[in-house]
């Protein structure tokens, strides 16, 4: 790979049942590029967690994935309510999801921790009332 590859996705905020479309598509694309199964697994799980967060909390958003020779970068951007206390949100088990979301098996407070667990670099920029931008990188 000599050039960067970029994929852009719009994450639909209304459709909970189709959440994961972008990450499943990324998984497919990375497979075609011949990346290792473990790298693909890490990228696609981190992205899925981010996608689900945007659907649950922010009414959707956009996802941009860049594949370079050295790493895969995922940028998630939404115009949702923002995260009040990022340190608290990063704690395993902390969640503000509704009971309805929990009944679907989400809202366990493991989303952001999983994103961190599966990536080599993660940065959260969030402003209450404005939105959240998350950058994640997985080294190849």
């Amino acid at each position: 790979m000599s050039e960067e590859l970029k994929f852009h996705f719009i994450v639909d905020g209304d459709d909970f049942t189709s959440a994961g479309k972008a990450s499943v598509q990324v998984k497919k694309n990375l497979r075609q590029l011949g990346l290792s199964p473990e790298t693909i697994r890490r990228v696609s799980i981190a992205m899925y967690e981010g996608e689900i967060n945007m659907v649950i909390h922010a009414g959707g958003g956009v996802a941009d994935v860049t594949v370079t020779e050295d790493y895969i970068e995922i940028l998630l951007s939404d115009k949702g309510p923002g995260i009040k206390d990022i340190d608290q949100a990063m704690q395993e088990g902390f969640s503000t999801a509704s009971d309805n979301i929990r009944s679907l098996g989400f809202g366990a407070g493991m989303g952001l921790p999983n994103m961190k667990r599966y990536t080599d670099y993660m940065d959260i920029k969030s402003t209450v009332g404005v939105g959240t931008d998350i950058t994640m990188r997985v080294n190849i």
Binding site: T17, P37, Y48, E49, L104, G105, M110, G111, N114, R117
Partner: peptide, 25 residues
């Protein structure tokens, strides 16, 4: 049954036992 736990802890190749049946599984 908690999907993020499964994604965080299950290993590739595991048989996943659950009672969850919604589309997200």
């Amino acid at each position: 049954d908690l999907l993020s736990w499964v994604m965080g802890r299950a290993k590739s190749g595991d048989a996943w036992l659950t009672i969850m049946s919604n589309i997200n599984i």
